[in-house]
Design a binder for these strands. Structure first.
Lengths: 154, 154
DNA sequence: TATTGTTATACTCTATAACTATA
DNA sequence: TATAGTTATAGAGTATAACAATA
């Protein structure tokens, strides 16, 4: 038998699926807002983050972003117009191009990443440290399981 | 002192932020794929999910989806063309319209939701039940904290 | 012939601004 | 005047198909 409900609004019980879905929308909204503040879309942010590590061709970039190569052409076109990335010729292969992030692009992506770190860090800070770590390890586990099921390029 | 690393690839340590971000992309990818299999975008899926509960006007729908009303006009146009929703006149207010999901739309959204439940359930099933529940409660807590900081319409 | 990348085209999603009709 | 909704327009993101150039 249940006791009386508390006077304040009862937080609705979410099943795991709904909780995961809602959380994903929240995180994506944060990414979108913070990227947007620097004039970037989430897609552009992803691309710049990928290129921050690597200097790769259009084909590989499409593979990593899981987009068609024709989509990446436009993505790079727009970012290049804004001085965030550059196409560079590949010596010894005249049909290939490599894409690199410019220093301006690097600055922007680092700024956005820091802002994301800060904001999501503040959200996580509402949990105790031990709960944070338990949560982090569980999320890692989920990512690992998903990545091994699907062949994920990250 | 650490023992020898295991022979298989060491799973990279993710900080909490990166873990949250990666998980959000995974969940969104699942949503996009399963919605796409039924010819829906994630946005259309969201709209249909909202309308599954409620019969509301364009303005309110825009508020819930956090979109401009002009964006919602197009969204509803396309869904209506495909027989998923309907605009209905509001008796006694000739400038308002309500949007309702059709039985076809309801069938599609339920199908996609079931598929999402199944797939995310399988992912979660890689965790022990107690770990699932701990995780679920932590995610709920994060959602709750985020929702109280920002004024979220859900 | 196979591969890398671009172009042409079309559609969805989104926003801003201007508009219509109604309250 | 204020509100509900649409239209006009523009740009990003995405895909498919056809193409050019090179390997």
């Amino acid at each position: 038998m249940t006791v009386s409900p508390p006077a304040d609004a009862p937080p609705p019980e979410l099943n795991l699926t709904d909780a995961l879905v809602q959380l994903s929308f929240i995180v994506q909204a944060v990414l979108g807002r913070l990227a947007g503040e620097q004039g970037l879309s989430v897609t552009q942010l992803r691309m710049l983050a990928v290129l921050d590590d690597r200097e790769i061709g259009m084909r590989q970039l499409a593979g990593i972003l899981e987009l068609e190569k024709s989509s990446v052409t436009g993505l790079v076109d727009r970012a290049e117009r804004r001085g965030l990335v550059q196409r560079i010729a590949v010596p010894g292969n005249r049909r290939a191009v490599h894409v690199t992030v410019t220093s301006a692009g690097r600055a922007v992506v680092h700024q956005v990443r820091d802002a994301i770190d800060t904001e999501l860090g503040q959200l996580a800070a509402t949990l105790s440290e031990s709960r944070q770590d338990t949560f982090r390890r569980t999320v890692e586990s989920l990512i690992h399981h998903y990545a091994t099921e699907h062949a994920i390029p990250l």
